[in-house]
């Protein structure tokens, strides 16, 4: 019985690959899945929203690339410790929610004295948080020095399709909020009222966090 050479070679090739495949099956088999997107549902309670918001800030939002919580000394970007207290009085006529919303949708509209503008528009790529995610982030920011008042039903004046209708009644539309949604306005165009109050250049060359 003589087996043709080509058949033997084929058998050898198949046996060799088969053996290595077998070795591949012997080692632990584990599938690694990408980290799950934070699930957001419309019926979250305020504390749940804050928790989710914190996760978004750590992950997708990339907030802690620049911002810190509880850091002292020279800073490049504002520290967020107790930020809710300051947010309530930062811009006259703005509630803390208004202020947070403006900071996120139009970061350059108001610059904290002593800092340079540098924050990207958060609801656009590459970060691209959705309106719901931003609500969760605001919910968390409010817990830093205050209590969460936003709900998942809160309509922010900047939201796509939202015409400044404060459905939940917690947010009054800002005096001259943009009406066309974030797609129509650019972050570089601040609301007229704020223009006068916006510092042209940082006064302090060695910036420190405002307290």
């Amino acid at each position: 019985m003589k087996v043709p050479v080509s058949l033997r070679i084929a058998a050898l090739a198949v046996a060799t690959t088969g053996f290595y495949t077998y070795v591949g099956q012997l080692v632990p088999q584990k599938e690694v899945h990408p980290p799950a997107e934070v699930a957001i549902s419309k019926d979250m309670k305020p504390d749940e929203m804050a928790k989710v918001g914190r996760e978004i800030m750590e992950g997708k939002g990339l907030c802690f690339t620049c911002h810190t919580i509880g850091k002292k000394g020279p800073l490049r970007f504002p520290d967020l410790e107790g930020v809710d207290v300051r947010a309530k009085s930062r811009v006259p006529g703005f509630s803390d929610v208004d202020y947070f919303a403006q900071s996120i949708y139009q970061p350059s509209a108001f610059i904290v004295p002593g800092f340079n503008p540098g924050m990207p528009v958060i609801n656009k790529p590459p970060i691209g948080l959705t309106d719901d995610e931003i609500l969760a982030v605001i919910a968390y920011l409010q817990t830093l020095g205050g209590k969460t008042t936003v709900t998942m039903q809160t309509k922010l004046p900047y939201q796509a399709g939202g015409n400044g209708q404060a459905a939940a009644g917690t947010v009054a539309p800002p005096p001259a909020g943009p009406t066309g949604g974030p797609a129509a306005t650019t972050a570089a165009a601040p609301a007229p009222q704020n223009a006068g109050k916006k510092p042209e250049t940082p006064q302090n060359p060695n910036p420190s966090p405002p307290q």
Partner: peptide, 26 residues
């Protein structure tokens, strides 16, 4: 396909590639 497959799966695909290569190279 964003997940990383198991090594067993990967080795099976590698084997398929190798056998295809040898079929073509012969």
């Amino acid at each position: 396909d964003a997940f990383t497959p198991t090594l067993g799966f990967a080795t099976r695909i590698v084997s398929v590639c190798v056998l295809l290569f040898f079929l073509l190279i012969s």
